[in-house]
Design a protein around this nucleic acid. Structure first.
Lengths: 345, 345
DNA sequence: GGGGAAAGTCGAAGCGCTTCGACGACGCAT
DNA sequence: ATGCGTCGTCGAAGCGCTTCGACTTTCCCC
């Protein structure tokens, strides 16, 4: 292994000079700099990460905690993770992968040992067990997701309340008066996952404002589960003319079932989804949808962290919530409700 | 930050003693050990990762390189990654997340700087650009996937050839004489991704052996693409009585299209998939399938790496290929082919 | 009862890097 | 000319840990 000292000898300078060439923290003459960089190149020198971390107490690593369970939302999770890794690299950081399994103690471990300088948490619950650690003298952190009380925390998320409202607005604007919401699996609500509840709240309040009747049902992703939920909804509310779906795995089953029961989309019934754009676009009926900006979320999370890490303390990005504005893309699955059956007959 | 020295002072012993208590590399009396562990506990001591890595030249980190593109196979990728992280932790290792973006140079960087002791590569191509680095004095590595020439490399994968053969055997055993294979998107074959080509080769050779006629078509995941491919297959080979699908996103579209064109599964046509068990089980017709043992793959990859890292040089797990035996689970989507139409009429 | 091995502990020497203070050599204003 | 600030470089002191050799004590076996 090539060390700094060997580079220094080879270039005929002192070790500190090499270090300063590398870090740029002191002025170095052009001549010397060239000699040093040439030696570095020739010897194939790579600074030792551990030694660097020890001497500078900066590991240039951020930890990313992904949920262990994979019962939902999987492609989005991976996309966020990849965006985090890519953005972090662009800023000279590497990413350590933690699973939710170890819980809060993983944060302490990784942070207390100086392994990671900061953390990004995904899949945040409204009342997340990892939050106390972060509030009390925790490491710099950014949450992807929004807990119940974001005070003193740094959060990035899609504005799911607005997303819900947007769906209702779109449907109400088309003339729908009664809609049904097919949500994530019951477990997601039971865990009080922020995004699910916030979407719901956005849907509910906007529905109330616009005098749209609304029914919400959690739903597992399997075909059979969707069939059951759909049957019950149609039984309970025969006049439902539109569905809002927030459950990636329920999308295709729903479309298939509507088709099978002779309901045309969007002529007889409209469908609006809150899901990854790719899913919406590739569906058997391309879906009008509010996209989940996975890449953007990952990117923003890292950028906030870096700002916090490199910025003046409590300067930019110290804390606060950043909610991305949802965008609704109209595709083929939404239209005006069918004319009422009775008046014409 | 609490240091080893402070713990030593607090416990009334020397620093090296504390170190030996931690590592167990030298015998320590029970009394001393208790005093030391108590101090560690009280002070909340955590060894500094960088210092450790520097002094021992072991970072206890393994790098995991995931593909950047997410055009296929996403849930499986995440599942493998999570399994890797979990297993690694169980052995005292952490996982650094690399994306394919940086390519071979990321391997050099992370390994040359002592950041990671070893690497796991996912989504290996038959002729992967990262392989030369690994063969020539590279770091310990395990590939999840199988390149064209695995000589000198450590690989773990599902035996996709056998998986292909298994599908043919199952269908041939039921009496099918003519099948069609709906594959991954063309790009996957263009990249020469190992698993896709190996599955195909297994399908082909077994089909030849059992005198089954077979047609293979790559296919994008969108509903429209599947519709096009299906139409062409049925046009070209009207007597196809079974499909083998290796494309997670094509599964539901295919089932929907068969249904819509009045073909009952499995009465009129059988479907066998090579995909994650969850997808197969949750499909609108629960699919007979060969599962992709994502967790097992991640676990085995780490275990081989650890064996290599801790074992005597060139002892256990030095190199070689480990192929997991595929398992075919019969569900509702496969049955005997329909009786020929002519003889009865 | 004496020799040797094993147990238990300590001190010191690094591991490879960053960073601080110091120092000579300039250039500029006085 | 003299003094001061800057530039460019060096030496040395750690950062917190592991590990080696050495030392003392204990124990066992002949």
């Amino acid at each position: 292994m090539v060390t700094l000292a060997e580079v220094a000898r080879h270039a005929g300078v002192s070790a500190s000079t090499v270090s300063y060439v590398l870090s740029g923290k002191r002025p170095i003459s052009a001549v010397t700099r060239r000699r040093v960089t040439a030696s570095i190149e020739q010897l194939g020198y790579q600074p030792h990460a551990g030694a660097r971390a020890l001497a500078s107490s900066r590991s240039r690593i951020i930890a990313l905690m992904v949920p262990l369970r994979t019962d939902m939302y999987v492609p989005v999770m991976l996309e966020i993770a990849v965006a985090v890794a890519t953005t972090a690299r662009a800023h000279g950081y590497d990413v350590l992968l933690l699973t939710g399994e170890e819980g809060p103690s993983a944060l302490r471990r990784v942070t207390g040992s100086g392994l990671a300088e900061a953390v990004i948490l995904m899949d945040v619950q409204l009342d997340d067990g990892r939050l106390p650690v972060l509030r009390t003298a925790g490491p710099p952190a950014v949450l992807v997701g929004l807990p119940a009380d974001p005070a003193g925390l740094n959060c990035v998320d899609l504005d799911f309340r607005a997303a819900g409202a947007l769906c209702v607005d779109h449907l109400a604007g088309l003339g729908h008066r009664e809609i049904a919401v097919i949500g994530e699996s019951p477990g997601v609500y039971a865990r009080h996952t922020g995004f699910a509840e916030r979407t719901l709240s956005g849907l509910r309040s906007r529905a109330a404002e616009r005098e749209v009747r609304m029914l919400h049902r959690p739903c597992e992703g399997s075909h059979d589960a969707v069939a059951g939920v759909l049957a019950r909804i149609l039984d309970e509310r025969p006049h439902v003319s539109a569905f809002v779906v927030q459950n990636e795995t329920a999308v295709e089953p729903l479309l298939a079932l509507l088709r099978r029961t002779g309901r045309a989309v969007p002529e007889d019934v409209s469908v609006v989804a809150v899901c990854a754009d790719q899913i919406a676009a590739q569906a058997s009926v391309p879906l009008t949808s509010v996209a989940i900006p996975a890449q953007e979320l990952g990117r923003r999370a890292v950028e906030r962290l870096i700002a916090r890490l490199t910025g003046r303390p409590d300067g930019e990005g110290a804390a606060g919530v950043e909610l991305l504005t949802p965008v609704l893309t109209v595709r083929d699955s939404s239209g005006p409700p069918p004319p009422p059956r009775t008046p014409g007959a």
